[in-house]
Design a binder for these strands. Structure first.
Lengths: 232, 232
DNA sequence: AGATTTATTATGTGCAGACATATAAATATT
DNA sequence: AATATTTATATGTCTGCACATAATAAATCT
């Protein structure tokens, strides 16, 4: 028995401490909730809450009956927030501007048709736009929107509205996938972002879906220097 | 009143449904926990658990006294797993190899001391290593380890052990931060990765901590073509 | 009117007890 | 020996209750 470890945060701290100090080593099974509750002088529910939090972060593996053990190869999960570009810019105290570059209704090319899992005949709205921070190019947005899924889009004035925001508000998605990579700026991107040809640029490609129906696919090419930051 | 909505997952489903169907619109304040518990026919604790989960996912904003409201700009969160490099490579069916390039105990430079929040006099172990997939350079690892936090490291043979794996097994961390960016390969990196100078490369920089104590900071420079992929 | 204190209210969290559920381990069956 | 069944156990979660805490709204005092 020891001094009050009452709150689940206290318990979490204590547990993390024991893992770090190797009182409990990777692979070790730790005492069960009832015993820990007794030792800490708190309710089992409190221990449970704490252990669940630590397990969520990947440092503990828990299985019914088998007990709780310190993860051997903790697979760390980083959660990164996908902000709306305007917010991202304004949050840094910079002035946001948006400029439509091109707008066109097209039949999809084969690769795009595959990536967006389109049926034959489904058309896309293709938008090219630039987001600026304090007047400087920040990110070039190359976007395809599935007209079948979001028919209202054809009526929208994309000079005034930007797809990044409009879609969040009007076309909720159930799931999607994102890929991050680095690439060399091609002729088009280099000119739009106003950087030398082949400059290293950060690229995000994102597709979103609502119940198997593709909504949109976007390729964001960031101006040099952009960092995507998050905590584990 | 309606059919049993007893489990917190049930409540979560119901809440998500109402948000999706715009019964509760963005910005709307939703009924308080006591009322919802009454409506669903369950305990307030259950409603609380569910609402906390939804709030965690970013779809609800909660504040004491002010109540719970539907997020106006739902910040989507992607969780991406940080695999051990060996696993990442072997999972693709490729052969994994590791090569130590350089190993050195140093006093930190000012910027590194700041980034790792080191006290004066704390020394670092600096490791440079290359991870290969099927014999080809995959990622160049440039790592600093805090000797004060992990004193055992000085005794480790880094020809045989790779820090990426050794640390997860021996020095678990409670939190950290990650940054993703694109950069141009410098002379050192270009040679090690065997690519032309200024090739666009994907860079991950990661610092990890255990209870305010810095453990390590690593800069991973990936060979061209690397993509980091995840789902929302 | 404006500033300061007090009350009110919704969420945050703790507790004890109960039952549910997954599953490892023991036992019985083929 | 291999397979099916039972049992024991650790975690998962619900309930009702209590009190803590943050933050707004109301009341009070300059």
């Amino acid at each position: 028995m020891q001094d009050a470890i009452n709150t689940w945060q206290d318990v979490q701290r204590e547990v993390l401490g024991r893992i770090q100090n190797r009182v409990w080593k990777p692979g070790d099974i730790i005492p069960n909730e009832v015993d820990l509750a007794k030792e800490f002088g708190c309710a089992r529910a409190t221990v449970n809450r704490a252990l669940q939090a630590v397990a969520d972060s990947g440092l503990l593996d828990r299985r019914r009956k088998a007990g709780t053990r310190v993860a051997v190869n903790p697979v760390r999960k980083a959660t990164l927030e996908i902000p709306i570009i305007r917010q991202e810019i304004e949050q840094r105290g910079q002035h946001y501007q948006y400029a439509l570059i091109e707008q066109q209704v097209t039949d999809p090319q084969a690769d795009m048709q595959a990536m967006m899992k389109l049926s034959d005949g489904q058309q896309l709205l293709h938008l090219k736009a630039l987001h600026l921070a304090d007047g400087l190019p920040h990110v070039y947005e190359d976007r395809w929107i599935n007209i079948s899924t979001v028919p209202e889009i054809v009526a929208v004035d994309w000079q005034q509205n930007n797809a990044n925001e409009w879609l969040v508000a009007h076309a909720p998605f159930s799931d999607g996938d994102i890929a991050f990579s680095a690439g060399a700026a091609g002729a088009v991107e280099a000119e739009i972002l106003n950087v030398p040809l082949n400059t290293a640029v950060f690229i995000i490609e994102r597709s979103t879906w609502m119940m198997q129906q593709s909504i949109t696919r976007v390729r964001l090419t960031y101006a040099p220097g952009h960092r995507l930051h998050t905590t584990i």
